[in-house]
């Protein structure tokens, strides 16, 4: 089955709906029409640009260019992970923890999927590698930033409790265990919710896209199930690695709690 290709006039016609939104904003004095317009223009420009670049990346199918593209996405995601928490680890700690965890979780999950389940030829074919890495990254980013925020906030609020255990002869790892567990738990809740709601409350994006592209619904569902498994795995890996790396940054060779390495955002 061939997908039904859209023409530019099709899009122009659909954009009338956006104009209707703008009219609504003016009529109800929502003050949103300018922002609606700017956001819509950005969305169109960004997506067309990505589409054009990906067209080239897919056509060239050069492993180095594919890797560079994925690494750029990883770097942007790492920056996002580092920026979200209220607390910051000194000496670029958030960024290096975020980048290591995001890269580790994304590459491991994506390579696993490309070499075992999806198996394109070659396995690093950008048509599969790029969108797959992007999807995994989105979830890994969420899990990693939730875990990092929870761990750093937990450790700084739990100082008395952590040090009380250290004083009685507990190892740093023992004293931090509840905070690491809590951070991983919080990072995994969104994917649990996604899985419970999938198909009942929402028809997931990939499945919708595959169906629109002409795929059999059951085949589309199978694809979606595989992807959600990947997202769950990637989230778990990211949550655990970000929590352990951040906890490691909060201690030293004498198993102290080094909150002096943390600063709150904006003073």
């Amino acid at each position: 089955m061939k997908p039904i290709l859209l023409t530019w006039p099709d899009l122009a016609l659909a954009s009338l709906l956006l104009l209707a939104d703008g009219g609504l904003s003016i009529w109800l004095q929502l003050g949103l029409h300018r922002r609606l317009g700017v956001a819509a223009a950005r969305m169109v420009a960004q997506l067309i640009a990505v589409g054009l670049v990906l067209r080239v990346v897919f056509a060239v199918a050069n492993p180095a260019i594919t890797l560079a593209w994925v690494l750029t996405m990883v770097a942007l995601a790492a920056r996002e992970v580092a920026a979200r928490p209220e607390q910051r680890l000194g000496r670029w700690g958030n960024l290096s923890v975020g980048a290591s965890a995001v890269a580790f979780a994304t590459f491991l999950t994506a390579i696993l999927a490309l070499t075992t389940a999806i198996r394109p030829h070659p396995w690093y074919d950008p048509r599969y590698a790029v969108p797959l890495s992007g999807m995994i990254l989105g979830n890994v980013l969420n899990a990693a930033s939730l875990a990092l925020d929870a761990l750093l906030a937990g450790a700084s609020a739990g100082r008395a409790a952590i040090e009380a255990q250290l004083c009685l002869g507990a190892s740093f790892r023992q004293a931090m265990r509840p905070y690491v567990r809590d951070a991983v738990r919080r990072a995994l809740l969104p994917i649990v919710n996604t899985m419970s709601a999938a198909g009942v409350v929402t028809l997931p994006g990939i499945m919708t896209g595959q169906i629109l592209a002409g795929m059999d619904p059951l085949e589309a569902a199978k694809y979606q199930i595989l992807l959600i498994f990947l997202l769950a795995g990637g989230s778990g890996l990211a949550a655990v690695s970000v929590s352990l790396l951040a906890a490691h940054r909060l201690t030293d060779s004498r198993q102290r709690l080094r909150l002096d390495r943390l600063t709150a955002r904006r003073g």
Binding site: I162, Q165, C167, G169
Partner: peptide
């Protein structure tokens, strides 16, 4: 080791900690 040292030379802070 740091935990061993702290078990023998035990600090009991003014504000107690509970985990």
């Amino acid at each position: 080791s740091a935990p061993d040292w702290r078990r023998h030379v035990l600090y009991c802070p003014a504000e107690s900690g509970w985990w």
